[in-house]
Amino acid sequence: MNNDQSYKDRPLSPHLQIYKPQITSILSISHRFCGVFLSLGLLAMFVFVLLLAIGENCYSLWQYFSNSLIGEIVLMGWVLALFFHMFNGIRHLFWDYGLGLSLSVSKWTGLAVCAATIIVSIFIGIISLGLII
């Protein structure tokens, strides 16, 4: 399939750092980055169920992790990534129906995604610190 020489001679697409950062491109790469980061979160969910199924001694490892400072930071990172990926995913689903594809609307919905993520994350942060409920 690949004639070696012609494959090497193909032009490279411009690298990311050539482009001026814009909200549309930043959100696009963040969506992908959060997706990869959430794969680790899903793996952690699997480990959570694994430790729970093994028994109380192993489960205390999970409690030790989730109560440590590092654990809380990582868990909060997953919550943030989850809600960003979720809200931006809804934006993607609308795009699949051909809705909101114009530049002005996609900039506006991009800002709405950021705002919704920040609001929900702050709300969840407050709940998990035990300040309300």
């Binding site: 969910m45 989850l82 809600f83 979720m86 809804i90 993607h92 689903l93 699949d96």
Partner: peptide, 15 residues
């Protein structure tokens, strides 16, 4: 897309 829609509900519930 189908798994995304399912996860929309399930991941929210789980979180």
């Amino acid at each position: 897309r189908y798994s995304a829609i399912a996860n929309l509900i399930l991941a929210f519930w789980l979180a």
